[in-house]
Design a protein around this nucleic acid. Structure first.
Length: 300
DNA sequence: AATGGTTCCTGGACGC
DNA sequence: TGCGTCCAGGAACCAT
């Protein structure tokens, strides 16, 4: 499932291959993934055809291509099963669409870029760029997404965010997954970051000292940086990079997906429960569960 | 206004 | 072996 490290891996893979290239042909293969563009796939196709690619950027799980063309940017979100694949065509005749292939671009060097997404949670959007609250030029369609942990460059910025989380009564896990508060963190890295900080995800933000919330945010950043080093986490076959290779972070996970296995730190059995409709994996010894979770969600 | 719940979608895991 | 059922996930949307 692509979270920040997986999207960053794909962004890097694309960056070295497509920047400076021009989009020659657009094959809109149904275009069911187009969002927020009333004109649908036709709007996307006409914005991309002939455009030059100036850069590939990312915030959280959103990636966008900066364009010199009718639109400023092409925004890509991979949902939970999206893939961006690059291939060189075998000949002049375009291959038939692959299963679950939704869009295909032909670049001026003959390379093909395909957008594949079996579960259809991905998003494709063309958008203009504008300055957001942080001063960065970001697609307008991405303005509602908060900066991610890798964008927080100073301790001061981390503290400001930790104070924001401390001011709310929601569970910390829920807030880590709220892309409007901090972006890029999905279920895997939220659980891993909480483990590193020794905090149980059911704790309410208001009950957790700002110092500990900072440790959680730092934990998420550290674990995501480590994951980027090895190309992300391929929990199942759904995530691969632009060349089709999996990531290798799964073997370093401490809690996610390890229910019943021994904690790598203390040996206690990892447990799982449901928080806000999502699995939360934790070590009951390293992350003490609050006596009175804000809401008991396992009843009924 | 803030926040919890529901929905979208389909491959894969699981049970009989 | 083959069928049906359930679940996972991110983010938009709805309900309260």
């Amino acid at each position: 499932m692509p979270e920040l490290p997986e999207v960053e891996t794909i962004r890097r893979g694309l960056n070295s291959r497509i920047v400076g290239r021009r989009i020659e042909q657009v094959y809109g293969l149904g275009g069911r993934l187009v969002r927020n563009n009333p004109g649908g796939i036709e709007q996307v196709s006409s914005a991309l055809a002939g455009a030059s690619i100036l850069g590939v950027e990312r915030r959280g799980k959103f990636m966008w291509w900066v364009l010199d063309g009718p639109a400023d940017s092409f925004v890509v979100h991979l949902g939970m099963s999206g893939q961006v694949r690059t291939t060189t065509p075998d000949g002049d005749v375009p291959r038939p669409p692959a299963r679950h292939e939704h869009l295909r671009l032909l670049l001026d060097n003959g390379e093909l870029i395909s957008f594949v997404d079996p579960r259809m949670f991905g998003q494709l959007t063309v958008s203009d760029l504008s300055r957001d609250a942080s001063g960065r030029m970001v697609p307008t369609a991405v303005h509602h997404i908060a900066p991610d942990p890798l964008e927080l460059e100073s301790d001061e910025q981390v503290t400001v965010l930790a104070r924001l989380l401390h001011g709310k009564d929601r569970s910390v896990k829920t807030m880590l997954l709220d892309q409007g508060l901090v972006s890029g963190i999905g279920n895997i890295y939220a659980d891993e970051g909480l483990f590193l900080a020794g905090l149980h995800g059911e704790r309410a933000g208001s009950k957790v000292p700002v110092k500990v919330l900072r440790e959680v945010l730092d934990g998420c950043r550290v674990v995501m940086e480590q994951a980027v080093e090895v190309g992300g986490t391929s929990f199942d076959a759904l995530y691969v990079d632009v060349e089709g290779n999996p990531g290798y972070f799964e073997r370093q996970l401490h809690v996610y997906g390890r229910e019943g296995a021994a904690c790598r730190v203390c040996g206690t059995e990892i447990q799982r429960l449901t928080v806000q409709g999502r699995s939360h994996f934790f070590c009951p010894a390293c992350q003490r569960r609050p006596r009175n979770p804000r809401k008991s969600r396992k009843q009924n």
